[in-house]
Computed example of a mutant assay.
Amino acid sequence: MKLPEEPGDFNPTAAGEYWINKRQIDHTENTIHSNRKDLDPFLMWCDEHDIDRVGDLTEWTIEQYEDYAHAREDWSPITIKNKLQTLKQFLRFLGEKGAFDGYLHPAVTVPDLDRSQEVNTEKWDKTDALPQIRFMRTSAKWYGTFQHAVTEVAWFTGRRVQAIAGLDLSDYTREPDEEDTADGPYLDFNHRADEGTGLKNKLDSEEPIEISPEVADVLDHYIARERNDKRDENGREPLFTTRQGRASIAKIRGAIYIATQPCIRIACPHGENAKKCEYRKRDHASKCPSSRSPHRIRTGSIQWQLDQGIDPEDVSDRVDASVDTIRRHYDVPDDREKMENRRRKYTGVLEDSIDDDEESTEHLQSEQDDDDNPDTSSATTQ
């Protein structure tokens, strides 16, 4: 990219690309994708308002864009917050390069949200996910396909799509040997940034994650009958492959969009003919109102794991997210689910306490009865 004479002469769109390219050095592909998605509306807004130089941006233009963001009915509070946070980072970068007379990023007001506004409610809910997974497990057409296998892994582990794309065949263990401390099948997630498959939190993201025998059965079927026996450009054997090599994040994302469409199992809820619907094609699957992205699967998986009574600390290790993030953004069961979780976790303990107290009371009562009975008392002292 040819740089302008002065940083303030940067066209906003070009400046955005320059910033994104700089961030690719030390940020994951998923972060870059999010940054680009969050910044694009601002760059388009600048183009629509004939702002050709970043040096022409002022506190007032930022105020106008904020009004535009808050007025959009299709943006939730958390979406607005994310987009303004990204804009603030972008303007800070430009300010450090001298694009403005001083700094402009303090003019961006990122909204403070309460917990109910920050939780991520857009997810592949278990009421949709579990019937879909059960269907694929019993379908001769879908069982063990690429779409089925990546969806099972995404749902059961709750891991990010780039982590799933980075798995090697050797990262899957069906039968642990005697020296392995595991007692069942698992997937071992590893950070290999120098070979193009880094994890979001780098070495902190590395973790072997247990999977059920049923998920392992799906992977075994996929490996035996569907997987292309290919290596990637680094000579590694990926778990998920295409005819060219390692399956890309885009390939996995497209497969998940297809696998989460309800019309593979039931009649289309939108009244379309599934055989003729263009959304059944991988390149258009994301446009289906009922399909879900890998991130929505991750969100639903985290909630599902929490709903099963798994401690947030254990879910944190499985899905590679901080406990604070899980509690703040995901742990939002309804009142009945909260009751059921408390029942599973505490009812037995409380009941044991009652039993213990009853035994203690009976023992004390027995001693009291002995004290009150002179015949028993004298017999004891003789």
Rank of each mutant, 00 (worst) to 15 (best):
F189G: 08
I32L: 11
S34T: 12
W142M: 13
T381H: 06
E272G: 08
N341H: 06
E351C: 05
W45Q: 09
T381D: 11
A216E: 08
R174K: 12
F146R: 08
I310N: 10
D355N: 11
P269F: 05
D357G: 06
D370F: 11
S360L: 11
H33R: 15
R53F: 06
D232E: 03
Y222G: 06
E237W: 08
Y222F: 06
S286G: 14
N201M: 07
P312T: 03
D314G: 00
S139Y: 09
Y222C: 05
Q368D: 10
F100H: 10
R192P: 00
M136V: 15
R243A: 15
P289M: 04
E118G: 01
A163I: 00
E358S: 08
F90L: 04
T61A: 11
D314A: 10
N201W: 09
W45P: 07
D171N: 11
R253T: 14
R344H: 12
S212R: 10
R192V: 01
K141A: 12
G300D: 06
N30A: 11
E5P: 02
Y65F: 14
T31Q: 02
T260W: 01
D220Y: 03
L364Y: 10
E96P: 00
E29W: 04
S322M: 06
H363W: 10
E351L: 09
S34I: 08
D356V: 07
D168E: 09
G300S: 03
P12H: 10
R280C: 00
D314K: 09
V349R: 13
I62D: 05
E178F: 08
I209C: 04
Y257A: 10
K126R: 12
L203I: 07
G8E: 08
L219P: 09
R246H: 03
C46A: 09
L94H: 02
K345L: 08
E362R: 14
Q303I: 09
P7T: 03
D372Q: 12
T197L: 00
R231D: 12
Y18C: 08
L203N: 12
H284K: 14
D188P: 04
G271Q: 09
F93T: 02
D101C: 01
L167Y: 03
G245I: 03
W60D: 15
R253W: 08
N373T: 07
P111D: 02
R298Y: 06
N341Q: 15
I354Q: 14
S286F: 07
E59S: 14
L94I: 03
L87E: 02
A165C: 06
R265K: 15
W45F: 13
L94M: 09
G196M: 03
I25D: 08
I133E: 06
T86I: 06
V119W: 02
